[in-house]
Lab assay of single mutants.
Amino acid sequence: DRYEFNINGVHFTIDDAEEELIKLIEELLKRGARAEEIEEVIRRWER
């Protein structure tokens, strides 16, 4: 599934997002994580 979200006006799209990654990102968003922090999480996840 495609997952899309915005952080401070920056648009992100993840194709074939796994449910666990989506939950992790949503938790980070609730905590007010910065875009750079979430980008790093996504990079690590994709390795």
Rank of each mutant, 00 (worst) to 15 (best):
D1N: 14
D1A: 09
D1F: 12
D1P: 12
R2Q: 09
R2N: 09
R2E: 06
R2A: 12
R2P: 10
R2C: 05
R2G: 08
Y3D: 02
Y3W: 11
Y3L: 06
Y3Q: 03
Y3N: 03
Y3K: 04
Y3S: 02
E4Q: 07
E4M: 04
E4N: 03
E4L: 02
E4A: 03
E4T: 07
F5K: 01
F5C: 03
F5I: 10
F5L: 08
F5V: 09
F5N: 02
F5R: 00
F5H: 02
N6L: 11
N6W: 15
N6Y: 13
N6H: 13
N6R: 04
N6Q: 13
N6P: 02
N6G: 07
N6C: 11
I7R: 01
I7K: 01
I7C: 03
N8S: 11
N8E: 14
N8L: 07
N8F: 06
N8M: 08
N8D: 15
N8Q: 13
G9C: 02
G9H: 05
G9V: 03
G9T: 05
G9R: 01
G9N: 08
G9S: 04
G9D: 11
G9L: 04
V10P: 01
V10F: 10
V10T: 10
V10G: 03
V10Q: 12
V10H: 07
V10W: 08
H11T: 15
H11A: 10
H11M: 12
F12M: 09
F12T: 03
F12Q: 02
F12C: 04
F12D: 01
F12N: 01
F12L: 07
T13G: 04
T13K: 08
T13Y: 14
T13S: 14
T13I: 14
T13H: 14
I14R: 02
I14T: 02
I14V: 10
I14L: 11
D15R: 04
D15F: 13
D15I: 13
D16M: 13
D16Q: 11
D16E: 11
D16F: 14
A17M: 06
A17Y: 07
A17E: 05
A17G: 08
A17F: 06
E18N: 07
E18A: 10
E18I: 03
E18Q: 12
E18T: 09
E18V: 07
E18S: 09
E19C: 15
E19W: 10
E19G: 10
E19H: 12
E19Y: 13
E19A: 10
E19Q: 11
E19K: 10
E20K: 08
E20W: 06
E20S: 08
E20C: 04
E20F: 05
E20Y: 04
E20N: 08
E20G: 13
E20P: 10
E20H: 05
L21S: 00
L21D: 00
L21T: 00
L21M: 05
L21I: 06
I22E: 01
I22A: 06
I22Q: 05
I22G: 03
I22W: 05
I22N: 01
I22R: 08
I22Y: 05
K23Q: 14
K23N: 12
K23V: 13
K23L: 13
K23S: 12
K23C: 04
K23G: 11
K23M: 11
L24E: 15
L24C: 08
L24N: 08
L24S: 07
I25R: 00
I25M: 03
I25A: 00
I25G: 00
I25N: 00
I25L: 10
I25S: 00
I25F: 01
E26G: 11
E26S: 09
E26M: 10
E27P: 06
E27A: 12
E27Q: 11
E27V: 14
E27T: 14
E27R: 10
E27M: 13
L28V: 06
L28D: 01
L28W: 03
L28A: 15
L28Q: 07
L28H: 14
L28F: 05
L29I: 13
L29S: 05
L29T: 07
L29W: 04
L29C: 04
L29Q: 06
L29G: 03
K30D: 12
K30E: 14
K30N: 10
K30Y: 14
K30C: 06
K30F: 14
K30L: 12
K30R: 11
K30M: 12
K30Q: 13
R31F: 11
R31A: 14
R31V: 12
R31M: 11
R31K: 15
R31L: 13
R31G: 10
G32D: 09
G32N: 08
G32W: 02
G32Y: 04
G32S: 07
G32I: 00
G32V: 02
A33P: 05
A33N: 03
A33L: 04
A33V: 08
A33Y: 05
A33W: 04
A33D: 04
A33K: 04
R34H: 14
R34V: 14
R34D: 15
R34P: 14
A35C: 05
A35T: 09
A35M: 11
A35P: 11
A35I: 12
A35Q: 14
E36Y: 06
E36W: 07
E36M: 04
E36V: 07
E36G: 07
E37C: 02
E37N: 02
E37M: 05
E37R: 03
E37D: 11
E37K: 04
E37V: 08
E37P: 00
I38H: 00
I38L: 06
I38W: 01
I38F: 04
I38P: 00
I38N: 00
I38E: 00
I38K: 00
E39S: 09
E39V: 12
E39N: 08
E39C: 04
E39G: 05
E39P: 00
E39I: 13
E40L: 05
E40G: 03
E40R: 03
E40K: 04
E40F: 04
E40T: 05
E40H: 03
E40A: 05
E40D: 12
E40C: 05
E40P: 01
V41D: 01
V41K: 03
V41C: 05
I42L: 04
I42R: 03
I42C: 02
R43P: 00
R43A: 14
R43S: 12
R43T: 08
R43W: 07
R43V: 09
R44T: 15
R44K: 14
R44S: 15
R44V: 13
W45Y: 09
W45Q: 00
W45N: 01
W45A: 02
W45D: 01
W45T: 01
E46C: 00
E46R: 04
E46L: 09
E46M: 07
E46K: 06
E46T: 04
E46A: 03
R47F: 15
R47A: 15
R47Y: 15
R47L: 15
R47S: 15
